[in-house]
């Protein structure tokens, strides 16, 4: 049976594998990229990888808990990004730059 066949018995390990790959891409992106907005996007990618895993587990286990948890994760992610962008705008107004390399006042 093809892993793209989501008819009767999808193999949940395929979704899990995709989730792991997405999570890895997000982690790598966060650690390697310097633009703070791209870093935010990478965190979003990681959270979406978690969501995919939760839905896959929920379906495999046959109860809705995992899928309901996804809603909480989405809401929290939205709240975090809101706050993050607000701080970014405040920094941008002051310095006109938001790259991680420019945020180096604090070190020692």
């Amino acid at each position: 049976m093809s892993m793209f066949d989501i008819g009767n018995s999808p193999d949940y390990t395929a979704y899990l594998a995709l989730s792991v790959i997405l999570f890895m891409i997000g982690t790598m992106g966060f650690l390697l990229r310097k633009n703070t907005i791209v870093m935010f996007m990478c965190v979003e990618l990681m959270l979406n990888a978690v969501n995919l895993a939760l839905v896959a587990f929920g379906r495999e286990l046959g109860h809705a808990g995992g899928q309901i948890f996804v809603f909480f994760v989405l809401v929290v992610a939205a709240a975090e990004v809101m706050v993050g962008l607000a701080i970014l705008v405040a920094i941008y107004r002051r310095r006109l730059r938001v790259s991680a390399d420019d945020l180096s006042n604090l070190s020692g």
Partner: peptide
């Protein structure tokens, strides 16, 4: 800067 680093 501290707030943004903490958040990220």
């Amino acid at each position: 800067e501290a707030g943004l680093k903490y958040l990220l």
